[in-house]
Write a protein that binds this DNA or RNA. Sequence first.
RNA 1: GGAGAGGUGGCGGAGUGGCCGAACGCGCUGGUUUCGAAAACCAGUAGGCCUUCACGGGUCUCGAGGGUUCAAAUCCCUCCCUCUCCGCCA
Length: 425
Amino acid sequence: MLPLKLIVAEPDRVKAGALKKHIECDVDRIVALDGERKDVVTRLDGLRAESKQAGKKIAQASAEERPALVAAQAEQKQALKALEARSKEIDEEIRELLLLVPNIPAEEVPSGATDEDNVEIKRWGEPRDFDFEPRSHIELGNAHGWLDIERGARLSGSRNYVLRGDLALLEHAVMRFAFDSMVARGFTPLSVPTLVRRETMVGTGYFPGGEDQAYRCDERDDLCLVGTAEVPVTALHQDEILEGADLPMKFVAQSTCYRREAGTYGKDTKGLYRVHQFQKVEQVVIDVADEDRSLAHHEAILGNSEALLQSLQLPYRVVNVCGGDLGQPQVQKFDIETWMPSRESFGETHSASRFHDFQARRLSLRYRDEQGKVHHCHTLNNTVAASTRMLIALVENHQNADGTVSVPEPLRPTMGGRSVIGDPI
RNA sequence: GGAGAGGUGGCGGAGUGGCCGAACGCGCUGGUUUCGAAAACCAGUAGGCCUUCACGGGUCUCGAGGGUUCAAAUCCCUCCCUCUCCGCCA
């Protein structure tokens, strides 16, 4: 959420931002409503002041004076009620519109409409030149009995899967390695609910707009399954005023992630690339409202994930996500795309976002600075490792000619010390 | 699921219709004192909105929403949450 004051003061800047993101919103209506709001509030406050004074007089009035004063008050009350109703209407409409106004993208965000327009800014590692016909993770998974998509579908419908044996172990190994490496970097480990209230989804910027992508419980419980631990972790301190001295707060959390993937029928239908449920280790940073510090954190959390991919010997590239591919809340986003041989291309595995105070405003997440002044925090987050896409990359990139798969060094301790999994096919 | 208790400022805890944005204590900040510190003493210490160059002034908020009343933290209704006991249960 952008501050109302900013929208009113610089409507053109806000409109330009929305345009760059290809998102529609009614800035003019907000500006007009705010004008009326100020007028109504001023009159309302005046009326309230009067009736408060009158009330005090009644309390001190004699029995004879009282009836006349009370009658006069009752009349005043009508005007007050009408104004109060209007004031409330305005506030609600503003709030609704405000939730739809996108955050202003940074200068450095490239213009463009879709992910085709994202700009590659870095590449690490060389996609392997196989001297045999590489197999896809599906072929490898089937051959080793590691992957059971049919039974996954029978249990839970399409885009669900069962991991078995060493692939189930490998999933744990990557998650554990990702988690541990973040803890080693000083991030506070967290285990959080994956079922959250609607307000938490609104607070982090997923709602309104993303309802189709989230699973929700029925009306008995107004709860949603999160698509990422970013939601409960960023919202952990919602409605609080933190002490500036306690910032930055850096968290790492592993959670199951649920995604409906509505509107993706026919897209990536095979294998583990696009599924309804997976495991993810996520990093979240909450800090003071300082542009430079935000930028530094952004670089740092991107670097953390790059370090993980490098240690797993997985080639990747980093793209600067263009305006049209940016979500409503982000100021800027860098995606890491890891090489996936079966796709013969890079596939998105990480997404590093910075939000400035956009989420913090919605969440009412604030802190007190040294002068005692209260501000909204800045928030950021990035994937450390998403289970299924990491498994695709690991298995496909590290496969051998005989169908076995080499285990990168950092994962061996959690794989029983083995450097290779799978029998020759 | 059944029965009961309760939600007040950073914390503890008063307050049952007007003098209450809220006693008192703790904590925190500043000052006095001290070589320095502790103790003691004095003062300050919620957030939003409107208004003001500023000082300030006004208004809203005592879990949330609605109602009664000239007037609500206080009375009534609905909802949410927390705790205790019973039942069920990973």
